[in-house]
Design a protein around this nucleic acid. Structure first.
Length: 215
DNA sequence: TGCCAGGCCCTCTTTAGGGCCTT
């Protein structure tokens, strides 16, 4: 396997958790070249980042908790005339990824069980898919593999961030805010993370359980 | 009618159960 040249940090906001058969309400992809991961100091963000952030009409009600947490609602998404998860969005993501140096690795916190799985479910419903050679890395699993004795870290993204920076991550529970927080902590441990990283291919990602009616 | 994820990790484990993490 060729060494990853671009890490694309992914965060989704959605109508709920997997038991709610969620639909995406916001997606953010931030692409960072591997050289920037090594050259950026702790507490700084890379100067060169490509960002794609899109709000999405989920076409189903948000749970109250999800709406309160994210600040997104069916009302404000509709009032802003956001489109559903459709071919335009897939085309935008596809074009964004094509601009990045390959191989590409998507990174998300709890990605294997949530973000990648949900994104794959939504993409499948449009009868399209990402290239199978796209790699995926779950930062939740990866951080748990690290020796976190100093500082003592929880494994939630906010806890990991507080462990390194001693404060709450800014703009938490917005897709861009969480993606940037993930980049910040990833940079703190980039070399160690890449030593223990266990990648999956996009093909290996299991879609989120869809046995319940999602419409 | 009721339906309530799932992969990973830890331990009071391995013939299992429970908690974490994501909105």
């Amino acid at each position: 396997m060729n060494a990853v040249r671009t890490f694309v940090f992914l965060d989704l906001e959605a109508t709920g958790l997997p038991m709610d058969a969620p639909k995406i309400t916001e997606i953010c992809l931030i692409a960072v070249h591997v050289s920037s991961l090594y050259e950026t100091g702790k507490g700084q963000l890379p100067r060169i980042m490509d960002k794609l952030c899109l709000c999405v009409d989920p076409e189903k009600p948000l749970t109250e908790k999800a709406s309160n947490m994210t600040g997104l609602s069916n009302e404000n998404l509709t009032n802003n005339e956001k489109q559903e998860f459709n071919a335009n969005l897939i085309q935008a993501i596809g074009g964004f990824l094509k601009r990045q140096a390959k191989p590409i690795c998507l990174v998300a916190h709890n990605g294997f069980s949530y973000h990648f799985a949900l994104l794959k479910t939504e993409i499948y419903q449009l009868n399209v898919d990402f290239p199978d050679e796209t790699l995926c890395l779950d930062s939740l699993h990866t951080f748990r593999k690290l020796d976190t004795s100093t500082p003592k870290l929880g494994s939630a993204l906010t806890e990991i961030y507080k462990g390194y920076f001693g404060k709450e991550p800014p703009n938490s529970h917005t897709a861009e805010g969480d993606a940037l927080a993930l980049i910040s902590v990833f940079i703190c441990e980039a070399r160690r993370i890449l030593e223990v990283a266990k990648y999956k291919t996009w093909e290996e990602i299991r879609p989120m359980n869809t046995k319940r009616d999602i419409y």
